[in-house]
Design a protein around this nucleic acid. Sequence first.
DNA 1: TGCCGTTGTGTACGCTCGTACACATGGGAT
DNA 2: ATCCCATGTGTACGAGCGTACACAACGGCA
Lengths: 189, 189
Amino acid sequence: MSRRYDPERRQRIIDAAIRVVGEKGIAGLSHRSVAAEADVPLGSTTYHFATLDELLVAALRQANEGFAKVVAAHPALADPHADLAGELARVLGEWLGGDRTGVELEYELYLAALRRPALRPVAAEWAEGVADLLSRRTDAVTARALVALMDGICLQALLTDVPYDEGYAREVLARVIGREAGADRGGRR
Amino acid sequence: MSRRYDPERRQRIIDAAIRVVGEKGIAGLSHRSVAAEADVPLGSTTYHFATLDELLVAALRQANEGFAKVVAAHPALADPHADLAGELARVLGEWLGGDRTGVELEYELYLAALRRPALRPVAAEWAEGVADLLSRRTDAVTARALVALMDGICLQALLTDVPYDEGYAREVLARVIGREAGADRGGRR
DNA sequence: TGCCGTTGTGTACGCTCGTACACATGGGAT
DNA sequence: ATCCCATGTGTACGAGCGTACACAACGGCA
C-alpha cells in the first residue's frame, strides 16, 4: 500500500488526458501534453502509462461512464410500461445537448478503436453493455439494432451539422422496436 | 494548359495518400510519407497541397467513390419492385466483404470529419447523396434513418470484431422501411 | 531567339515527439 | 537502524514533422 507521495497521480493523469483529447483531439495527445495538463513531470506519464494506447484505454473506459451516467439517470428505461423509443430519444437528446466537446471526446475515443486494436475490446464492451441493458426490454436482435441506429443517429448529428431531432429519432427507433412498444402517441414527423 | 512535366502528378499524390492512410492510418499521413509513397520529392506534395487537410479532403472525396461504385453496381436499388432492405443488406455485405483495409480507410476518412471541420462538408455530401438516392424509393425521413442504421451497422462490424450478418441487417432495415417494401419474404431472423 | 513567370525541386531550420536511462526518495522488511 | 526496491524525476538523444525559401526547368510570348 501507500503510494508514497501521490496516490491519485494516476487518476489525475487520466483526467488530464481526457481534457487534452477534448480540447485538441487524439492527435494532440502526447506524453508531454498530458504531463503539462496534469502538472506532473514527463517521466511520470511514461511511468504510469508506458504507451499512449494504455492511456487511451483508460481514458475511453472512463469516458464511457459519461454516457452510462446519463442512462442511469433514466430509470424509465427499465420500466416495461414506459415508451422505450421515446425514452431512448430523450436520452440521446440529453447527451447530445450537453457541451459538444464532451460528446465529441467520447465519440472520438470510441471511434479510435477502428484503427487501434487495443481500444476495440473496450468499445465492444460498451456496445455490449448498452445492448444488454436494452435486452431487458426487447430481444437481443432488436437490442443490437437499436444500438446501431443510435450510433448512426449520433454520428450524423456530429459529422454533418444537422441538429439532432428528437421526434425523428423517436419515430425511427420505434420502427425498429416494432409493434410491442407504445409507439402510437406522437406524430409521424 | 500543359502542366509541363507531369499532369497526373496531383492525382498520383492523392492515390498515394489513400494508400498511406490505408496502411498506416491518418496518424501516419504526412507530407513526407505521401511523397515517399508517390515517389515524388517532398516539395511537390507541399506545392500541390499546402495543408494536410486539403489532401484529406481530396482523398475523402475520392474514397467516397468506392462505395458509390458498389452502389452503382446494384441497379436493383432503383427498381421499385425489388426488395429494398435485402438489396441494401447485400450492398453492405459486398462492401464489407472487400478487403478490410479499403473499408477501414473509407470509414476512417469519413469519421475524421468529427474533428476536422474541413472534412465535414464532404462527409455531409456523401450522407446526403446516399439519402437522396434512397429517397427515390421511400420518403426523406426513412431515407435518413436508413443511412443512419447502415452507418451504425457498419460501425459495429468494424469497431467490435463481430462479423457482419446480412440476414440481421436485412431484417432490421426492413423494420425501418416499414410496411410498403416487399419484406414479407424471408424469415424473421 | 530570348526573356519571364508558372511550375517543380532540394535543403535546411526549429520544433515536438517517444524513448531511454541514470539518479532521487522513502516505506517496509529485517 | 539499516538496506532494498518499487516508485517517481530530470535530462538528453535521435527521428520525424511542417514550413520556408532559394534555385532549376521549361512553355508561352515578344
